[in-house]
């Protein structure tokens, strides 16, 4: 198994290189450049040319790539043109804010959707099943900006239960547990919106997985042995239905770090989503490249974890040890 994992990781290296070339090419070939954004809007052509030369953007693209790669391997992603801070710092300042929110949503979504999925499958085509189908469809179809604004209006402006936006109160001096509570208080509304919108797919996944399993012969066998329905469902069926969920879990990993742009902007949540969009809009090359590479690598790792997890939970999947 360890050999298998090591081999998979080694396989990742050429893939990452190919991805990096693609990303670099796309980023650099996108029309537009960052030069204007940091200069005086009335800067002369000469000043713009000097700035381009200073940043090395006048060199041929393959030279730029090699230089960038050399730096990146050492962990130096350069300076963000937009924020004039090292890219690593810009990202680390906000990524944990996205992460906290996403982890809470992730846990909530799994805790809520798995039981719902199971019940819906067991009582297929019942009223309960239709209700949750409807509910999850509602969640996935509701535009998050509208739903978010609705919640803000109801719970923050009218009832004043929660702050309108932000992650902490401006000027807040809380520390320790009080700070956790404060952040938690600010997180309620965005977490609700994100959880509801991510419920749908998880509920459907669980439900379909369960249905598949429930129709298997061994379930019929278990039932005919006279086992109680509870044991059949939770011991025999659910365990097997978990397998596709493990895959899904792996795929969700990059999602933990990504930001929901619209939601972040409505709730002024200081996450990575808006940083990414601003970087793209203003062509902040170093920041764009670092973020895209980061998410690509996370996705690859997520896939790897899913495969490993799959092998661990499903004895039928044989790991090729050669």
């Amino acid at each position: 198994m360890i050999k298998y994992i090591l081999k998979r990781i080694l396989h990742l290296i050429p893939v990452i290189f190919i991805i990096s070339i693609c990303i670099f090419g796309i980023v650099k070939l996108t029309p537009g450049n960052p030069i204007g954004s940091n200069l005086d809007p009335r800067a002369t052509a000469e000043e713009k040319a000097a700035e381009r030369a200073r940043l090395g953007y006048d060199k041929p693209i393959h030279i730029q790539y090699i230089e960038w790669m050399k730096r990146s391997i050492r962990g130096d992603f350069g300076e963000s043109y937009l924020y004039k801070r090292p890219v690593n710092k810009v990202i680390s300042e906000v990524i944990w804010n996205s992460f906290i929110l996403n982890v809470v949503v992730f846990i909530l979504a799994f805790l809520i959707s798995i039981p719902i999925g199971i019940i819906s499958a067991v009582k297929q085509y019942s009223k309960t099943d239709s209700f949750w189908t409807l509910f999850s469809l509602f969640g996935i179809s509701m535009p998050s900006f509208f739903f978010g604004l609705l919640l803000i209006f109801g719970f923050s402006v009218k009832l004043k239960w929660f702050p309108i936006n932000g992650m902490i109160n401006p000027g807040s001096t809380t520390t320790g547990f009080a700070r956790v509570l404060e952040v938690g208080h600010h997180m309620v509304l965005p977490a609700i919106v994100l959880t509801i919108s991510s419920l749908a797919s998880l509920v459907r996944y669980t439900r379909n997985g369960m249905l598949d399993v429930l129709n298997q012969d061994y379930i019929r066998t278990a039932r005919s042995k006279g086992l109680s329905e509870k044991v059949v469902i939770y011991k025999h069926a659910f365990r097997n239905a978990l397998i596709p969920l493990v895959t899904l879990l792996g795929f969700q990993i990059p999602g933990l770090f990504s930001g929901a742009v619209i939601l972040e902007s409505i709730f002024v949540w200081p996450g990575i989503g808006r940083v990414m969009v601003d970087a793209i809009n203003q062509r902040d090359y170093n920041l764009m490249l670092a973020l895209m590479m980061f998410f690509s690598i996370l996705t690859l790792l997520g896939n790897l974890l899913a495969d490993i997890g799959y092998a661990l939970v499903d004895p039928r999947v044989k790991v090729d040890e050669r």
Binding site: L149, I164, N165, S265, I266, V268
Partner: peptide, 9 residues
């Protein structure tokens, strides 16, 4: 702030 909610704030 954000334009969507600044007047509410």
């Amino acid at each position: 702030t954000t334009a969507e909610t600044s007047l509410q704030e």
